[in-house]
């Protein structure tokens, strides 16, 4: 379980999180949705311990995030791979950092995603880079998997490959996945819980199928409806 308790964060004059209270259900794939500047990336960075709240606290499995680094795999939105490395070197780099690196899983994902270890990061396409990022995050046997915009700016076929990988790779009940994205229509069937953020606060959250049942709308339509009134 991941909990945000009265969490606030400001960057200069910009309020990123505004007394945010939120919990992510264990063993679920949660979609973290919201417009630009809603606080999605900031939230994920805080869970992975890369950012600290100004006020309030975050608990991962009852502990402060910094103490849980080993159980959290994080795919950042930015391009964090060293361009001079090839995939093999990038994997070796990750392996040296994390004890939960799963070599067998890495091999399997590599083949499934049609990637070649010898590919150099600086030479591959944007879609291949996105797949490499996913490969490196998912090849760990981590309890928590945080994905920040894993689909943005990627062609539809690659997006489908990534989604299929996530479904194949997901360990029912054991793993907690949070995926932030603008591409809600692509992940409609992938997520089972959703959190809509707006201006650093929770606008709406719940079970995806339950929300569909209550509102008779898809998640995309619910998002549009919620934010039409909000802004």
């Amino acid at each position: 379980m991941i909990e945000f308790i009265n969490v606030s964060k400001q960057f200069g004059a910009t309020v990123a999180l505004n007394n945010l209270n939120l919990s992510f259900q264990p063993g679920r794939i949660t979609g973290l949705f919201g417009p630009n500047g809603a606080g999605k990336s900031t939230s994920l960075k805080m869970i992975s311990g890369l950012n600290r709240p100004d006020r309030g606290e975050i608990r991962v499995h009852g502990q402060a995030p910094v103490g849980c680094k080993d159980s959290i795999a994080y795919l950042p939105e930015i391009d964090h791979l060293y361009p001079w490395m090839n995939i093999k070197q990038a994997a070796g780099f990750m392996q040296s950092f994390y004890a939960d690196w799963d070599e067998e899983k890495y091999r399997e994902l590599l083949a499934f995603l049609n990637l070649d270890e010898q590919m150099k990061i600086s030479k591959i396409s944007k879609g291949q880079r996105a797949k490499t990022k996913l490969l490196l995050a998912a090849a760990r046997h981590s309890r928590y998997l945080l994905l920040d915009e894993p689909l943005s700016g990627i062609d539809i076929l690659t997006r489908e490959e990534i989604i299929q990988t996530l479904i194949r790779d997901y360990r029912e009940g054991e793993q907690t996945v949070i995926i932030s994205t603008h591409e809600i229509d692509d992940v409609e069937a992938l997520v089972d819980e959703v959190v809509f953020l707006n201006r650093g606060q929770v606008k709406l959250s719940g079970n995806a199928d339950q929300l569909r049942e209550e509102k008779g709308m898809s998640l995309v339509e619910i998002m549009k409806e919620e934010f039409r009134h909000a802004n």
Partner: peptide
């Protein structure tokens, strides 16, 4: 089923 239909495994489980 989840892999073929590309849906959340928890949804299939339910």
């Amino acid at each position: 089923y989840a892999e073929k239909a590309r849906i959340n495994p928890n949804t299939v489980q339910r």
